[in-house]
Design a protein around this nucleic acid. Structure first.
Length: 268
DNA sequence: AAGCCTTTGAAGCCC
DNA sequence: GGGCTTCAAAGGCTT
């Protein structure tokens, strides 16, 4: 089941041409089969080969099988979703799609919506029965809320910059002997802007494919699903005084500068 | 333990 | 439609 789902999604992507004008930096893209070519001398694995290899990446098939017998839970998938295991232009798409955490969750299989009470089912009549029905409704609502809370969250697909960060983070950590993410992200932000349009376009294209795959896997999913789920201490930090330039992004927004190309003085 | 910091981009929300 | 907000990742730091 898992294999079929992934395989069909993969096939869909392989045969969906990018929409004309899609992406922020539309660049002439090589055909996907060329873009996915592994480095010389490295045997290219198809999805089928991947799952049937004598030494496959263990995660996908194993986890999907386990989930058949286990109660639903959110596994720690942080290690699986790594674009850094192959440098860009080598095996990025393959690695990413095979190891996408969304693929591991096993709970949101397209075409299998959750059971919804049929509208024809009506509450029983009679006062006592009605009270009992109310209690049932309440407990049902509670258990529904509990189930909702336990349900593994489907994360947003990563955008181009996030994919870039994921790949380059280790390199920056090694170069700068930094560990603090906030500092690393500042460096990565500057490096991102230093990239050429062509270099950035690789990540925009990859992000577009990530979104497309996400849509195929979770047709009903919306970013709305996770909206407001993260609790924030306060919004005061986000509404600093006008004298504080804030982040480059906010600063550019404040002064009406181009987010893609302009650097504002205070944030340089 | 939970949230903040810090980045960019995508998408939701609100007017 | 424009502007603002939230969330994706990451890990040390703060509350």
């Amino acid at each position: 089941m898992y294999k079929e789902t992934v395989y069909s999604a993969f096939n869909l992507l392989m045969h969906y041409p990018p929409p004309s004008g899609a992406g922020q930096h539309p660049q002439p893209q090589p055909p996907l089969h060329k873009a996915n070519q592994p480095p010389h001398g490295v045997p290219q694995l198809s999805l089928y080969d991947h799952f049937n290899s004598p030494h496959p990446t263990p995660a996908p098939a194993d986890i999907s099988q386990k989930q058949v017998h286990r109660p639903l839970q959110t596994p720690d998938l942080s290690g699986f979703y790594s674009l850094t295991s192959g440098s860009m232009g080598q095996l990025p798409h393959t690695v990413s799609w095979f190891t996408h955490p969304s693929l591991m969750l096993g709970s949101s299989v397209p075409g299998h919506p959750a059971a919804i009470p049929h509208p024809a089912i009506v509450p029983p009549s009679g006062k006592q029965e009605l009270q009992s029905f109310d209690r049932n409704l309440k407990t049902q609502a509670e258990s529904k809320a509990e189930k909702e809370a336990k349900k593994p969250t489907i994360k947003k697909p990563l955008n181009a910059f996030m994919l870039y960060m994921k790949e380059m983070r280790a390199k920056v950590i090694a170069e700068c002997t930094l560990k603090e993410s906030a500092a690393i992200n500042q460096i990565l932000g500057r490096r991102w802007h230093a990239l050429s349009r062509e270099e950035q376009a690789k990540y925009y294209e990859l992000a577009r494919k990530e979104r497309q795959l996400h849509m195929q896997l979770y047709p009903g999913w919306s970013a709305r699903d996770n909206y407001g789920k993260k609790k924030r201490r306060s919004r005061e930090k986000h509404q600093e005084s006008t004298t504080d330039p804030g982040s480059p992004k906010k600063c550019r927004a404040r002064f009406g500068l181009n987010q893609q190309t302009d650097w504002c003085g205070p944030c340089r």
